[in-house]
Write a protein that binds this DNA or RNA. Structure first.
Lengths: 107, 107
DNA sequence: CCGCATCCAAATGGATACTG
DNA sequence: CAGTATCCATTTGGATGCGG
């Protein structure tokens, strides 16, 4: 099921990262490789099913790399691709803006 | 119904603008004040109900200003607040990133 | 440990009809 | 023109149980 890209580039970006879970995953992986279980624990309220879905989707989009180790018990590690890492400045901007906004609200 | 802000600032920002429709509305309004009908026509595939919902939500969040003129037929104009305008750099970054991404894919 | 399959509840969005 | 109200189809996500 190939996603087709929207006409507007802003929308393209949003389609890829504009999701509550995806940004949280990105922020986690920016600090380095993590295992599935670590991600799940770190994000907290996400269900296993949804986390899997999001990771698969981001993998398809070329933002995340998935590495499976043939061990028992199994180990699966996720990391950002170069494309994924290139989103960092945007995430940082969003972070800064979000903080300012919060200040405005709370006075 | 007051929304409570998420813990992570990135998420805060995303809660406010991370929506297919909201970014499109923002991009439209960045170029100046628009009437309801203009927005609807410009965005195209959005339904009246959803456009109203999104605008109301953005108004509550302090991103958009709504101005009603006591005329017949009625005229309602929407514009960005200062807070809303301050999102422009982020939207621009997203736009640029989206274009690069598209090139990579179609490459 | 990681993830798939299934079932089910809730939220979302479109279509339509009606109003000041 | 710019909404509101209602109904309904689709999507989404949580919970649970099973499997490599």
């Amino acid at each position: 099921m190939k996603k087709e890209l929207p006409l507007c580039p802003v929308e393209t970006t949003l389609t890829l990262i504009g999701d509550k879970w995806k940004v949280l995953i990105l922020r986690d992986l920016i600090n380095g490789t993590k295992r599935f279980g670590e991600l799940k624990k770190s994000i907290g309220s996400i269900s296993q099913k949804v986390l899997t879905q999001q990771l698969r989707s981001m993998e398809e989009d070329g933002l995340v790399e998935r590495k499976v180790y043939a061990e028992v018990p199994p180990r699966v590690e996720y990391s950002l691709t170069e494309t994924g890492s290139s989103l960092k400045p945007i995430l940082d901007s969003m972070c800064i803006w979000g903080e300012k906004y919060k200040e405005q609200i709370n006075g």
